[in-house]
Each structure stands twice: as structure tokens, then as C-alpha cells.
């Protein structure tokens, strides 16, 4: 009986397994171009994979516009999916052709930007957070609220990144607002004004963040999830916190250009990329958080991506960043500069 089933399955699969060469457009060194992963994919499906890289989101969009038919899979950050969809660059995803999609966190599949134009246009793949981390020397028990940033006892031991957008969105979280639609800018300004006198210095890169934490200069500071995982694996005494107020998130999806001629192979590749088997191996080499709850559950228990980010309750608190228009960005910068100049 089992043999018969397998044979039938093989016969069914066979027409799809015609060897195609698919072209993937992504950042260099970002998961899809891992040699061992591609080799295993080719062995399993017969399809070969060729990569092309972009160095900015604008370049990715330009490549899609000017080379129709050249790409079969493209990585698009969710903040740019609506633009790509509106320009007709990418097509809707047929969920039936991506079996692993069933295990992907429904909250991510329902992401507003990935569902641009009313249908899923990108399969959620990886995500990460901007939240904060604490020095475990100062906090034997990790706090659960961002209010620690305003704790008078920590004056001069607090830090946030010198970035207008991040600062404003962080204050929006602290005042219980939607980071993508801040209605009460006065509250944000008041909250940030209060925060300024708490701050020791602004951090700008992973290295100076690590140094200041190691020297005990920082007790609590905003941080990125991927960087926190790295710092912790290097032995820094820090804990990453996703507070009850939520955190700022980014989400990367895999999309299929509307002009792709090898859609079946493209679907097979995307399914491969969200497969737990692939993710567990990739995670060991340092990957961002996965969209696939089954993949997160398959990780070693102590793994950062499982322990801290693997919980669907955490994902539910995340506010994913939406596109920010230039004029809004500049108004945030003006506010940020005003606050910094007043110091």
C-alpha cells in the first residue's frame, strides 16, 4: 500500500519536477544563496538556482521594473511590498503551492503590507525586532515594561540609538500608540523630552553598544534582536526584552515576480526556504527569526530565536514597520534635532 502511494505521489510530482533554472534576487549572503541549501534543493527537485543581488530596496525595484521575466523569486521587505504590488511587479501567492505556509504564523501571513491589493503577495520568511536589552548585572530579573527607561534610579545609564525614526517610534510604543500612525505627537515629544535627561549617550553601532554594556555604562538600551543574539553568544551579560507595550518589527517576504515564467519551480524554492529543516541548519549559522512556528519549535531549547522570539504571543505584540513617507521622516528628524539641541 505504501509503495503504491509513493509511486502515485511520484507520478503526480513528476511533471512539476522538470528541471528549471530559477533566478533569485536578494541581498548577498542572506540565506537563499547558501551553497549547501541550494545543493540540497537541486538534488531534491532538479531545479537549479542562480542568484542576483541588490544593495538597496530602490535597486531591487529598479531591477524588477527594467528586467521583466529575468527573476523568479525576489526578497522584498514588507514596507516595500505595497509599492511593488501597485506597480504590478509581483503576483499574488497561490497558498496551495506552498505546503509549508500552513505552519507559518497566521499573524504574519495576515500582515497588511504583504497582503497589498487584497491578496497575499509575499510569503513571510524572516523577521526581527527593535526593542531593548538590559544589563543582567543591574536586572537579575528582566523588566516587562519600557517604563524602565524613565526610572530615575537609572539616570545616566540609559541609551537609545541616534536615529530620529527609531526614537519617535519607540516613544510612540511607550505612549501606547500605533507606530505607523502616530496621532498624538505632543505625547511623543513630552515622553522623549523626559527621556533625554536619563540618557548617557546615543549609541550608533553594535560595537559601541557592546563596549558600553561591557563597561557598565549602560543598564538599559534599545537594541536589535539579531545584534542581541550575537552579543549574548559572545558572552555579554545582557537579556533581550520584548515588553508588554510591544516592539518595532521588520518583516521580509519572498515574492514571485508577475513576469516569472518558472512559477512552479519558484513556489518549490519558496517552500524550501520556509521549511523547518532548512531553517534549523541556517539558524546554527546565525539567522534572523523565522516566520514558521514549526521551524521555531524545532530549534534547540536554549536558542535565542526560539526562547525569545519563537513565542507567537511575542509576535502578536510586534508592530511591523510600514512605509514612511519622506515628509513624515523629515518631521521626525526636525523633532529629534530640536530635542538634541536643547540638551
Amino acid at each position: 500500500m505504501k509503495t503504491i502511494l509513493m509511486t502515485t505521489a511520484l507520478v503526480l510530482v513528476a511533471p512539476m519536477a522538470l528541471a528549471d533554472e530559477i533566478r533569485v534576487l536578494n541581498w548577498q549572503g542572506y540565506g537563499t544563496d547558501l551553497d549547501w541549501a541550494i545543493a540540497a534543493f537541486t538534488e531534491a527537485t532538479g531545479h537549479t538556482v542562480v542568484h542576483e543581488y541588490f544593495t538597496s530596496e530602490q535597486e531591487m525595484l529598479t531591477k524588477l521594473r527594467t528586467n521583466p521575466g529575468a527573476y523568479d523569486v525576489v526578497l522584498i521587505n514588507s514596507a516595500f511590498t505595497p509599492q511593488a504590488q501597485a506597480e504590478g511587479l509581483i503576483g499574488p501567492i497561490d497558498a496551495a503551492k506552498v505546503p509549508n505556509l500552513a505552519d507559518v504564523d497566521p499573524a504574519l501571513v495576515a500582515n497588511e503590507d504583504l497582503n497589498a491589493g487584497g491578496a497575499l503577495h509575499g510569503v513571510p520568511w524572516t523577521w526581527g525586532l527593535t526593542s531593548f536589552a538590559v544589563n543582567t548585572g543591574d536586572f537579575p530579573e528582566a523588566p516587562t515594561s519600557v517604563s524602565v527607561f524613565w526610572d530615575p534610579a537609572l539616570k545616566g545609564r540609559v541609551s537609545i540609538r541616534d536615529d530620529a525614526l527609531e526614537a519617535v517610534q519607540f516613544a510612540a510604543l511607550a505612549t501606547g500608540q500605533n507606530i505607523n500612525n502616530i496621532t498624538d505627537m505632543d505625547a511623543v515629544k513630552a515622553k522623549l523630552t523626559e527621556l533625554m535627561s536619563q540618557i548617557a549617550t546615543f549609541w550608533s553601532a553594535e560595537t559601541d553598544w557592546n563596549q558600553n554594556m561591557a563597561a557598565g555604562q549602560f543598564a538599559v538600551a534599545t537594541y536589535w534582536s539579531g545584534s542581541a543574539a550575537r552579543s549574548m553568544s559572545e558572552g555579554l551579560p545582557v537579556a533581550f526584552v520584548v515588553p508588554e507595550e510591544g516592539a518595532i518589527g521588520w518583516l521580509d517576504g519572498l515574492s514571485i515576480p508577475a513576469s516569472s515564467t518558472k512559477q512552479d519551480a519558484a513556489y518549490a524554492f519558496i517552500d524550501w526556504m520556509i521549511d523547518p529543516d532548512f531553517y534549523v541548519k541556517w539558524e546554527a549559522e546565525g539567522a534572523p527569526a523565522t516566520s514558521n512556528t514549526a521551524a521555531a519549535a524545532a530549534l534547540p531549547e536554549e536558542s535565542f530565536n526560539r526562547k525569545v522570539l519563537g513565542d507567537p504571543a511575542t509576535v502578536a505584540r510586534v508592530q511591523f514597520m510600514r512605509p514612511v513617507p519622506d515628509d513624515v521622516r523629515e518631521s521626525y528628524l526636525a523633532l529629534w534635532q530640536e530635542l538634541k539641541a536643547a540638551q
Partner: peptide, 22 residues
Amino acid sequence: RLLGGRVGTTYGTLIEDQFVAV
């Protein structure tokens, strides 16, 4: 910026922001 921390915002920072950040 590196030594002044919170109080280290200067006119030069302002110019840099316009070129780099926005």
C-alpha cells in the same frame, strides 16, 4: 558625539544628518 554623548549634538551633526540620515 563620541565624548559628549547626550550633550554632544553640534551644528556639524546637523549638517551630517541632512547628508546621511534624510
